[in-house]
Nucleic acid binder design. Structure first.
Lengths: 168, 168
DNA sequence: GGCTATCCAGTTGTGGGCAATTGAATTGTG
DNA sequence: CACAATTCAATTGCCCACAACTGGATAGCC
């Protein structure tokens, strides 16, 4: 049961005349909420499209990185994906159980664990080639529009990460 | 430990000449990944800013709706937030434990549960008024730019929801 | 060589998101 | 009125995100 979206963007002005702070509250709701909602909506579409491949959206992101870069230590994978070991360790374990990756301690540095796509994992790429088209189609956006949006979001993320690091 | 972001947007072209499908894969990574990353980055900033209030980001979203609309059944709350009972039930229970809301079966329809902000919950709004300013500041974006982005994301969400419902 | 600081993956605990199911209440229909 | 279909909140089970911590490995420094 997916709830019917009722975006606050479309909600009418409240009965009381808005003070400045109220304005801020509504605006704030729009940025944070629309972004959150869009992210979850994407997740929903990926859930449908990736069902055939038997992997989840975060697992797909991991495979994308591995397809592009080949074997990587968990640390590097985390840097690419902006995820830490707390998220990646169990996720990679599931991918290993699914037979898509292998994890092996690096011989050169025993702290590090190399994540390597298996034959099966590499083969999965062929079936994944159809995914992006379907996703782009689902957005109803033009390529340029997507690129533009992506750029803005990238700038946004950088600013937010910087702000979070600075404690506010 | 927060991983250092290494956005794929900035990654150089791969060694092999990209076929069309490769292009699609990279582009895809940019939309879905940047959106996902931006959402999590927002979450991080909210985590910091909301620590004082003792609530999480999703809990804050719930309180925003309650502050604006007053008491609401769980169902309505879910429509506003695009969340179902599987997410809301435990979340609301935590908000109740924190003393910010009360949940009571509707007398008119015993299936429905009304969620009502307590005095304490209503009082929290005053302290929350400072939040949006800090968030907007953290984005480094101008108001108009935020509005624009928000509008795009709203359109995107609508399209994605529609596509997911249609099974692709 | 020994000591300490740092780095790395993994684990634990809390919270969120969602599909699927349950069970009770209500509505619609004959 | 009776019975089937629908609605609603809650629960279960799985996965993801992240903070905090653990334990082992390495690097740097004396």
């Amino acid at each position: 049961m997916t709830a019917t979206p009722t975006p606050p963007t479309a909600s009418p002005a409240p009965a009381a005349p808005p003070e400045a702070a109220d304005d801020w509250l509504r605006l704030d709701q729009q940025i944070c909420f629309t972004l959150n909602a869009a992210s979850r909506a994407f997740n929903g579409v990926y859930r449908v499209v990736l069902k055939d491949l038997g992997i989840t959206y975060p697992q797909y992101l991991v495979m994308l990185v591995l397809w592009e870069h080949g074997a990587l230590p968990v640390k590097k994978l985390g840097e690419h994906l902006r995820l830490d070991s707390g998220t990646l360790s169990p996720l990679l374990k599931r991918l290993e159980t699914a037979g898509l990756v292998r994890r092996e301690r690096s011989v050169r540095d025993e702290r590090s664990v190399e994540v390597r796509p298996t034959e099966e994992g590499i083969a999965l790429r062929q079936r994944a080639l159809a995914v992006p088209r379907r996703i782009v189609a689902a957005t109803g956006f033009e390529i340029d529009e997507i690129r533009d949006l992506s750029g803005r979001l990238h700038r946004l993320t950088a600013a937010l990460d910087k702000a979070a690091d600075e404690g506010a």
